[in-house]
Design a protein around this nucleic acid. Structure first.
Lengths: 203, 203
DNA sequence: GTCTATAGTTCGATAGAC
DNA sequence: GTCTATCGAACTATAGAC
């Protein structure tokens, strides 16, 4: 009878796979995608380099998995922020504070996920996940327009604009490590004015 | 006497290089970066595949040159639009109309340049050229703040937000080929409100 | 899991420039 | 006669089909 993978073996493989992804996330967080070589990932996970290919077809697949795991967390954090009931202004402010605040706590990681030139497979995921963020923001804008808090507008276009604005603003500070102290408040003011909140102060 | 490259030969090589880049731009414009294989580029330029490598070290280098050539034109078009004197509101409106209008005229090409997953070398140029656009917009915002037309704000942050917003909004329409009729006007309204223009109507 | 198709890159041979 | 640009087939890797 041929070799059959027992539940015990499968569990060990799952653990090993998780260790690989975790090691890769650490490396990306410390030094970006560029530092995330297969050899270094394997060394940190305590396995041989070739073993990585038992779990991932290519380096690009591993990097894509890193992106998926981390950014899924970020989408959920933003979802929690935007789902909270309240006025559209508060919800959009919460999105920006949540997204930017979490990014600035892990600038190297956030820069890698947001902008670092890397495998096209990661590029494709960037598009996919930006859409997820846009959907969340669009829901808040739809509600705001429906309640009359916001003037009539195309919520999808507005939400795309907000997502693009927030992402672009963060790139340079995340890359250089230094942000203007008024960065987040400037973006919030810009965003609230943009969607038509009458009093865009948010002190 | 050893062979030396004469001016005549050099001119022919320069022409050949330009033909390669032009053929590649045509292909990207018709079907995106994905359709831009070395063999197809060479065939369209009327040369053998191997000859491409006399001019470019790799496919990525060729794609990067395509990006550089086309987007340099776009930066200059936006520069012309924003340099025109006038109020900040008019200048920002002109930037959006120019950028979006030109993109929508060549949607396949614009999508490829703006967002299509492709070689990291192109990603790196995207960052570089977004900075060029941001610098142009920031200058307009600085002037608007200085003249009192716009409220005090961090012009670099605002300009980044504008550039990110415009780019993000265009991605989906360029990809699917269909845009909401109010897309551009929605972005303009969003942008003018965002920077604090009091009356953001622009009919 | 193997096989096939496709695409990037390399390289030896040829033809042409000096 | 020597050197170079070009060609195009071969090599290598990857993706998809059966």
């Amino acid at each position: 009878m041929a070799y059959r993978r027992t539940a015990q073996i499968q569990a060990r493989l799952d653990t090993q796979r998780a260790a690989i992804v975790y090691a890769a996330i650490e490396l990306v967080g410390e030094s970006g995608y560029g530092a995330c070589s297969i050899v270094r990932v394997a060394a940190r996970a305590g396995i041989a380099a070739g073993t990585v290919y038992n779990h991932f077809g290519s380096k690009g697949d591993l990097l894509a998995e890193v992106f998926r795991v981390v950014v899924t967390r970020e989408v959920e954090a933003v979802r929690a922020a935007v789902t909270a009931s309240g006025r559209a202004a508060e919800r959009v402010t919460a999105v920006i504070e949540t997204f930017a605040g979490r990014a600035m706590k892990s600038p190297r990681l956030a820069y890698a996920l947001l902008a670092e030139p890397v495998d096209p497979k990661v590029d494709a995921l960037r598009l996919e996940f930006r859409q997820a963020f846009t959907d969340l923001v669009a829901a808040a804008v739809v509600d705001g327009v429906a309640s009359g808090e916001l003037p009539p507008q195309n919520p999808v276009v507005t939400a795309s604009a907000l997502v693009g604005a927030i992402g672009e603003v963060l790139i340079d500070p995340l890359d250089t490590g230094g942000s203007a102290p008024d960065m987040v408040s400037t973006v919030i003011t810009f965003a609230l004015r943009g969607i038509g909140v009458h009093d865009a102060s948010h002190a």
